[in-house]
Design a protein around this nucleic acid. Structure first.
Lengths: 295, 295
DNA sequence: TTGAAAGCGATACCAT
DNA sequence: ATGGTATCGCTTTCAA
């Protein structure tokens, strides 16, 4: 028969509400949206829906959203893709429901799920080496950023610390500038591993301007696999995928079943994967690595 | 005093649920996310929350999501930024709650809210003319797309149909190819108005490769103001902003108060605005036009 | 005007 | 095992 229990009544009578809240202060949804997609996907089967609220950096609004969630009796809360200032303005300690942080700053002893940046970097550099590249440079973001440090660590895992990385900001402009700088310095290299895709785009442009052929003369790999950037780069950019959708799925599972939580000490790291395109050769061999490439 | 009524009980007892459902099949959230942000913003004051569900093109999943929304007794439904196939696989006719389509294909006689592409195009071309440009070309997307036609119409409103547009796809590669084609044909021009930002990026690159100076020799303006692309273009790209966030706000108002609906015949058009950067000169005059530039 | 009682649609605890 | 009933927290209706 076609009986559909009313979720509202079900909730009122003390059961779980079969809904979770998602809070983000992302600007363009670069991280939040794929996470959200994974979350929906994972929770749809279990019949739970997600309340989403995007706020712009204001602590008051964040607090109000959480209150609103709680009034709806959400079973869990996820904070996604936000800058760390959100967590600071929000005290979720005695909230009474599971909270998980997805690709977001998190307070100590909380459930935090992030991509394994270090492993992702190793994947990229390994691939570069397997393609016969000898002198792999690293141009990346601000030195003090956590992502910068972690990705750098993965890079060093493979090549050691012979070649000092070039720190800058996460922009195309910096990627271009770095190429200029490099040419002036006369350092020789046959590959550059970039801290993110925007930098990689800039590097590609800088190389193009200088007349060096990619991937023949130098190979380039990016990070984050922001498809709109990576796919239309010239040539299409090989990049490390963050597996955001998988993170969304995982976060959904954990928020509903806190027992699944792996370790309370430090973040839970989910695998990245390498999406091979044409910027470092080998694209036709259609290499693929662990994880879920679509974010 | 600090009394917070329980929304669940309120809902059960026959009131409105103070929640709406948002359904999208967007891939990267380019449209859905800003719309969502506007929606949240508009509804937060009224104390209504939004259930969001992102599905990937599957008709079954869409239907299931709508059912789930209905079980939660949402007060309204918005379909956002989706390809038209979603509306086809979904019959929302006798659903009993207001439905609005935001930047999405919509069935006849439904509430549809979209950016005023034609007006946006006029804004762009007008600006180009005001900067003294005489021969403005239009390179754009597939001829049969609705956006292509509407933007072209706006272009023709200003310059007439002297210069035939160049149709292609919405990619950077096409923008580059168009420049090559143009150089071969020997057509002379001092500005190009692009159908979207990706094409504009390609055009910019093509121009750069050919050694023509932007904006001195030729000015370029894009469409959609996808900030990650526009801001880091070389030079930063002047572009028509779609006002997606405002659309989200409007859609929220309409879904809660269907009486506000402007016209049932055809879509309700919200203003675009021009965001002036350096790709067509005049950036320092910090020109701005109607609408809300942040999406 | 104010206060008490009857749903709303399920769950859960009792009795039988 | 099985049916009846109190309960969840609020709105609405009806008395007083």
């Amino acid at each position: 028969m076609q009986f559909k229990p009313d979720l509202t009544a079900k909730t009122l009578s003390g059961m779980r509400s079969m809904s979770v809240g998602l809070l983000t202060d992302d600007r363009d949804g670069r991280f939040s949206f794929p996470i959200m997609a994974g979350l929906t996907e994972a929770l749809a089967d279990r019949g739970v829906l997600v309340f989403m609220s995007v706020i712009d950096g204001d602590g008051k609004a964040a607090k109000a959203s959480v209150e609103a969630f709680l009034n709806r009796r959400v079973d869990g809360l996820v904070i996604a893709g936000s800058r760390t200032d959100l967590v600071q303005s929000l005290d979720l300690s005695g909230i009474g429901i599971p909270v998980a942080y997805a690709v977001a700053g998190a307070p100590p002893n909380s459930c935090q799920i992030c991509p394994d940046n270090r492993h992702g970097a190793r994947l990229a550099v390994d691939w570069l080496k397997s393609q016969g590249r000898q002198r792999i440079l690293h141009v990346t973001g601000p030195e003090h950023h956590l992502e910068t440090k972690t990705r750098l660590a993965g890079y060093c895992d493979i090549v050691g610390s012979v070649a000092p990385p070039l720190f800058g900001d996460w922009s195309e402009a910096w990627g271009r500038a770095a190429m200029l700088e490099l040419r002036k310095s006369g350092r020789s290299f046959d590959a550059v591993f970039c801290g993110n895709d925007q930098i990689a785009r800039g590097v590609l442009e800088g190389l193009h301007d200088a007349g060096v052929a990619v991937p023949n003369d130098v190979a380039v790999v990016g990070f984050e696999n922001w498809e709109v950037l990576a796919e239309s780069a010239r040539p299409p950019l090989t990049s490390v995928d963050l597996g955001l959708k998988a993170i969304g799925r995982r976060v959904g599972a954990v928020v509903l079943e806190p027992a699944l939580q792996a370790n309370v000490e430090g973040p839970e790291l989910l695998p990245c994967s390498l999406v091979v395109r044409q910027s470092c050769g080998g694209a036709d061999e259609s290499q693929s690595t662990a994880g879920d490439r679509s974010d």
